[in-house]
């Protein structure tokens, strides 16, 4: 099982022949991901990294049966790339690109939400990784170990931190979902948590959030009502000043309810095991799962 991507996923890479696309597609293939081809308009018919290149996503789907895509195209063209993938019937669209205009994403999200069987992950995210099966993202593969902990996070390097600590704590990962740090993202914290709660291979969940927006609170309230597995939570940005964007476009404290402290309070009230220090994520999860490293 696992969620979103696994060893049977047929993955294409949009922006395949660019420098980012080339590097990360290579890493994905090396990890054992089933990359079936890529898309670069105008380069259809060529071969890149021993895989076929297509002009359009529709061509790629027709020829390879691809059901997952990862997008590395530049911000100005990324919204178009997402819509093209959705139109071609791709089921899981992972968008790595950072810096897509917000108004583009407002339109894209509104459209994707009308589709029944299309999941958008990101943008501005490290991707999705099912340990030992498929890496559809830019996460370093070697820190993962197959196991039963699912991870949901807005941040890239903080996800790596959690993954690494989970591995060192004697546990391993089912699927890690980097949902992205933009104000508008396809899959919310709650939706990612729902996927992991429903996954028989996942026994515990790490939920990493940050200042800005209400995604973590929304997820926490759902967990309180419907959660069946232990959740360890961390919220970054206790020390972030109000009204300043902290790197991620969405990481900005707007009011009293989207500070790190306010979110942590809600998480605790909803029964989530909240750690104050990011250095204690693995330790806390091991404790909750009854494992000693």
């Amino acid at each position: 099982m696992s969620v979103l991507v696994n060893k049977n996923s047929k993955v294409i890479v949009q922006g395949f022949t660019g420098s980012e696309g080339t590097f990360h597609a290579g890493q994905m293939i090396e990890y054992g991901t089933n990359v079936v081809g890529g898309v670069t308009p105008g380069k259809g018919g060529q071969t890149h990294l021993d895989k076929p290149v297509f002009n359009t996503v529709a061509d790629a789907v027709k020829e390879t049966g691809a059901d997952v895509t990862i997008i590395f195209v530049p911000p100005a063209f990324a919204a178009d790339a997402i819509l093209e993938a959705a139109d071609a019937g791709i089921k899981v669209i992972v968008t790595i690109t950072e810096g897509i205009p917000v108004n583009d994403m407002v339109k894209v999200k509104n459209f994707i939400d009308t589709l029944n069987d299309c999941t958008l992950i990101g943008p501005n995210c490290p991707g999705v990784m099912t340990a030992g099966e498929a890496k559809v993202g830019i996460m370093p593969g070697f820190i993962f170990k197959k196991g039963t902990i699912g991870i949901v996070s807005k941040s890239g390097t903080l996800t790596y931190e959690a993954v690494d600590q989970i591995t060192k704590a004697g546990l391993g990962q089912s699927t890690a979902i980097g949902i992205g740090g933009d104000p508008i993202i396809g899959t919310t914290t709650k939706e990612a948590v729902q996927l992991l709660m429903a996954d028989p291979d996942t026994e515990g969940i790490v939920m990493i959030g940050e200042i800005g927006g209400n995604l973590e609170a929304e997820a926490a309230r759902w967990i309180k009502e419907h959660g069946t597995k232990p959740v360890v939570g961390f919220i970054a940005g206790v020390t972030a000043p109000k009204g300043r964007t902290m790197g991620h476009a969405g990481a900005i404290v707007g009011g009293d309810d989207d500070t790190a402290e306010a979110k942590k309070k809600i998480l605790r009230e909803c029964g989530i095991h909240v750690v104050d220090s990011p250095a204690e994520i693995g330790k806390k999860m091991a404790e909750v799962m009854g494992v000693t490293a």
Partner: peptide, 29 residues
């Protein structure tokens, strides 16, 4: 470099925005 000036006494340099915020929090702790 993505930099925001704050008032404290420990500087930090991190890769990634989320880890950077988490590192600020560690400094405080």
């Amino acid at each position: 470099l993505n930099y925001v000036q704050l008032d404290g006494n420990v500087g930090c340099m991190v890769n990634g925005a989320g880890l950077a915020m988490a590192t600020m929090d560690i400094i405080k702790l």
